[in-house]
Amino acid sequence: MTSDRGHDGAQYLAGSPVRVAMLRALREEPRRPADLTATVDATRTTIQRILAGFGERDWVVKRGAVYRVTPTGKRVHDAYETLLEEVERADRYGQFAADLERAGVDFPPEALAAGELTVAAGRNPLAAVDRLTELLREGCGAEMRAVSPVVIQQFNEAAADALDAGATIELIIDRDVVETSVSEFGPATERALTDDDATVYVASEPIEYGVFRYDEIACVTAYDRRNNPQCVLESTDSTVLEWVDEQFESFAADAVRLSEIVDNA
């Protein structure tokens, strides 16, 4: 268990950007107080007070007129910088991770920052849809595999363009969107049933997230509670590629061809 002294030290460092800047500067190289005045935005009095606080915690020592960070101070600095990086990563990937967690998806946490993230924001609520559409068009001529809980006209049009350019597509869709696909997107459904390069399956279980893979690019899409694409993580990292392949195979194991569903209907 972390001691109260540890909490006090963490609060002390985090309580002032100047303290963080000073410890970072001393981590880089030993400095005199005058050098710190030129490096950080603080008065000489403030710097002396912070140096005294660092000294009380054994984070720095004074040797002659120069202050040096101790091994303990280095560890404190490095741990704090790591914490800042994790907090920044949480700000960036938090919504993506939360949406996947809500869907019960066991996405590897070490892969969260292993790629580029596109987020649907207030100024561009269709950012995730637009990026997925771009990726579909960029995959012309490739072998594509995807799992999607929704059918969207933009996706249908981009997939048609990819097929025209020589791509092959395997797609698994949610059973709840089959009726919509047949009634509202007749031409796309007809092509899915007749084009030898397009194979569409219907999942046996609800789909609450999306995956997409072609060549060495893998994407994971998180959806909000209204089933709108919110975040798209695209990556070439081997962990993400393998995870996406596993998810596709898991859905494909119990899926049935769309043609069977349509024929039975």
Rank of each mutant, 00 (worst) to 15 (best):
P30L: 01
R32N: 09
P33K: 14
D35E: 11
D35S: 10
L36E: 07
A38N: 07
T39W: 03
D41R: 03
D41E: 01
A42I: 07
T43F: 00
T43I: 01
R44A: 08
T45E: 01
T45V: 06
T45M: 01
T46C: 02
T46H: 05
Q48Y: 10
Q48K: 04
R49W: 07
A52G: 01
G53I: 06
G53V: 05
F54A: 00
F54L: 09
G55R: 13
E56A: 11
E56N: 09
R57V: 02
R57C: 03
R57T: 05
R57W: 10
D58E: 14
V60C: 08
V60T: 12
V60N: 03
V60M: 04
V60H: 04
V61I: 12
V61C: 06
R63D: 12
G64A: 12
G64E: 09
G64V: 14
G64L: 11
Y67L: 01
V69R: 00
V69F: 03
T72P: 05
T72H: 11
G73R: 01
G73F: 06
G73V: 08
K74F: 12
K74D: 15
R75V: 12
V76E: 10
V76D: 02
H77Q: 13
H77Y: 15
D78Q: 15
A79F: 13
A79Q: 14
Y80A: 11
E81Q: 15
L83A: 15
L84Y: 02
E85S: 10
E85M: 04
E88H: 11
E88D: 13
R89W: 02
R89S: 13
A90C: 03
A90Y: 03
R92G: 03
Y93C: 10
G94W: 04
Q95D: 12
Q95Y: 06
Q95S: 14
F96N: 12
F96K: 14
F96T: 07
A97W: 02
A97L: 03
D99R: 01
E101Y: 03
R102S: 12
V105N: 05
D106F: 01
D106P: 06
P108C: 02
P109C: 00
E110P: 06
E110F: 14
E110Q: 15
L112Y: 04
A113F: 00
A113E: 04
A114H: 07
A114V: 05
T118F: 06
V119T: 15
V119D: 09
A120H: 04
G122T: 13
G122H: 10
N124W: 08
A128P: 06
